[in-house]
């Protein structure tokens, strides 16, 4: 498994596209939207907007890791690497882990870098950093598990990319990452409660403000873990089909 991880990390480090999607684009969006929405004179309101936009775009862009996941797995399947590795003593579930774990590392690095950017450039408050870290780890698991389920379910790369866009952008819109949730209709606010982006964003904001209660944290972690676990179960169910398609 380590062999797979080492190679994957080497490849990801050289992947300029990944750096663009995961770091440059979210920074550009954050800067752009903060500059648009903080034109008023009220400094307190401006800071409140920043405190919402920074975690909002972190949560939104974290989901774009799913594009890279789809590309890596489908390419491996279609060019025969998955089948090639099946001829080695590598166990098939170690292959899965060896491919999955590097994406987890990327997501956690992405979240840390984007929070640091928010801190350095906009002086966002990071009131409860340990809770932020715990939430980040939880989001890391949930997002990559959803990515894994998607990857092992779709037939083509294009299909995977299209569904990622729907999940990332649709989820962002419905979860109040773009527009404050209170401004949205009731039914959309209800839908938001079923989306991981909503829980991640709300909890990030609370932790940044330093107001997270233990019960709220546990509730968020529970929801995120449940979604992640459901996705992981789908991935495990789909994996044999993925392997079968890869070797035939």
């Amino acid at each position: 498994m380590n062999a797979m991880m080492i190679v994957e990390l080497k490849k990801h480090l050289q992947d300029k596209g990944l750096a663009f999607w995961m770091l440059i684009l979210p920074i550009l969006f954050t800067v752009l939207f903060i500059s648009i929405f903080t034109t008023g004179d009220n400094e307190a309101v401006n800071q409140e907007i920043i405190q919402s936009i920074v975690p909002g775009y972190i949560v939104m862009f974290v989901f774009f890791i799913m594009i890279s996941m789809v590309q890596v797995f489908i390419k491996d399947r279609d060019r025969g690497m998955t089948a090639r590795l099946a001829s080695t003593p590598l166990k098939s579930y170690y292959y899965l882990l060896g491919k999955w774990l590097p994406f987890m590392y990327i997501v956690i690095i992405q979240i840390v870098v984007l929070f640091l950017f928010g801190k350095v450039v906009y002086d966002v408050s990071l009131g409860q950093p340990i809770i932020l870290l715990i939430l980040s780890l939880s989001i890391m698991f949930t997002v990559t598990a959803i990515g894994l389920a998607l990857t092992l379910t779709v037939n083509t790369e294009n299909m995977g990319i299209a569904i990622t866009q729907v999940i990332a952008l649709g989820g962002a819109m419905l979860s109040g990452l773009w527009i404050p949730l209170e401004m949205m209709p009731d039914f959309m606010q209800t839908i938001a409660r079923f989306l991981p982006q909503y829980w991640a964003h709300q909890s990030f904001q609370d932790a940044m403000a330093g107001t997270t209660q233990a019960s709220e944290l546990l509730q968020t972690l529970g929801v995120l873990f449940a979604i992640g676990l459901a996705a992981f179960i789908i991935a495990i169910v789909r994996y044999p089909y993925f392997l079968k398609r890869a070797v035939n």
């Binding site: 380590n2 062999a3 797979m4 080492i6 190679v7 080497k10 490849k11 050289q14 992947d15 060019r79 025969g80 690497m81 089948a83 090639r84 590795l85 001829s87 080695t88 003593p89 590598l90």
Partner: peptide, 26 residues
Amino acid sequence: YVPQDIILEEDISAAGNLQLFGRLYH
């Protein structure tokens, strides 16, 4: 096993590819 298609990691070096397969065989 030498597959019919060329199945290598194109973005890493020749030595990197050999290391990968060496590690897979412990």
